[in-house]
């Protein structure tokens, strides 16, 4: 089944190959999701399931809509005016796009780490970790706050490096440390899912390794979805990989196939996938 033939087919049977069906209840289930910017269809007809407590990588050429898709998973794409979706995204069986659901609540449960480290410049390292609570005016006792900071920074493999200078501004850290601070900030609010949008693309190789090692640890507690343009990274860290593609400029992005990472890189079902992972395009 080629990518082109999908267009004419009814959505339900659109040919995304799921050779490996997750045996457990999925953390996130996406059904026939179309994502629009105003009238422009950016991503069409995505149906995938994301397994809990594992790492799922989204790969594909630039402009194929993988970041847009990722941002639709915690309704961050709504920050852009007139962006909206059709279809269903379920978090543990609950539709996050139901009309009475506040996107703010969704984002508390599905955290996000961005491409470039973005600690709050007005806050210290300590305050940055607590930002999720403090900004929501949750009252914390000092011991509780200390506990959360230490726990989150430890979880982000940063505690040892910063424990003596928690009052320094977050921006005083190196790029890789800043990104781990952002991860600590995201996990401090104890989300169920962690979305990562090319978290290493602005970092040097050493920092990248540190983040990858961290992801390996975090997947015991969190469901992680990572967008990466780096196929080696996807191969190194993820259990499952989804390949997104685009037919041409102005066309909507769509998912080509999703499978266990091992299989995607050794024996993909679609030609487009094998072309991409072997470096023939993109």
């Amino acid at each position: 089944m080629t990518a082109n033939s999908e267009i004419d087919m009814p959505a339900q049977t659109a040919g995304i190959t799921h050779s490996e069906v997750t045996s457990v209840e999925p953390a996130i289930a996406v059904n026939n999701l179309n994502i629009y910017y105003d009238k422009f269809l950016a991503v069409r007809d995505v149906t995938i399931e994301i397994a809990p407590r594992s790492i799922t990588a989204l790969i594909g050429p630039s402009g194929c809509g993988k970041s847009t898709f990722l941002r639709s998973l915690n309704r961050m794409h709504e920050v852009i005016p007139k962006a909206h979706v059709e279809g269903v995204v379920q978090l543990n069986g609950e539709d996050i796009y139901r009309p009475d659901v506040d996107p703010v609540t969704v984002r508390r449960r599905i955290g996000m780490v961005f491409q470039r480290p973005n600690p709050f410049p007005t806050m210290s390292i300590y305050e940055n970790v607590l930002a999720g609570m403090r900004l929501n005016a949750n009252r914390l006792s000092k011991p509780d706050a200390d506990e959360i900071v230490e726990h989150s920074l430890t979880g982000a493999n940063l505690w040892g490096e910063v424990k003596d200078r928690l009052d320094n501004p977050g921006s005083s850290l190196s790029g890789g440390q800043q990104q781990r601070l952002c991860i600590a900030r995201a996990i401090a609010v104890e989300p169920e899912v962690l979305l990562m949008d090319e978290p290493c693309s602005a970092l040097d190789p050493i920092s990248t390794m540190a983040i990858e090692a961290l992801m390996e640890q975090l997947k015991d507690q969190f469901t992680i979805v990572i967008v990466t343009h780096n196929m080696q990274q996807a191969a190194r860290v993820s259990e499952r990989t989804a390949f997104f593609n685009i037919d041409g400029p102005g066309q909507p992005g769509h998912i080509v196939e999703m499978d266990l990472t091992e299989k995607m890189f050794s024996n993909p079902q679609e030609k487009a996938t094998s072309d991409y992972v072997t470096g023939r395009f993109g």
Partner: peptide, 17 residues
Amino acid sequence: MSQPVAQEKINKAPTSV
């Protein structure tokens, strides 16, 4: 697929008081 049905959805998103 050309006319987005969910156009009104963006405006309906409930925001806190």
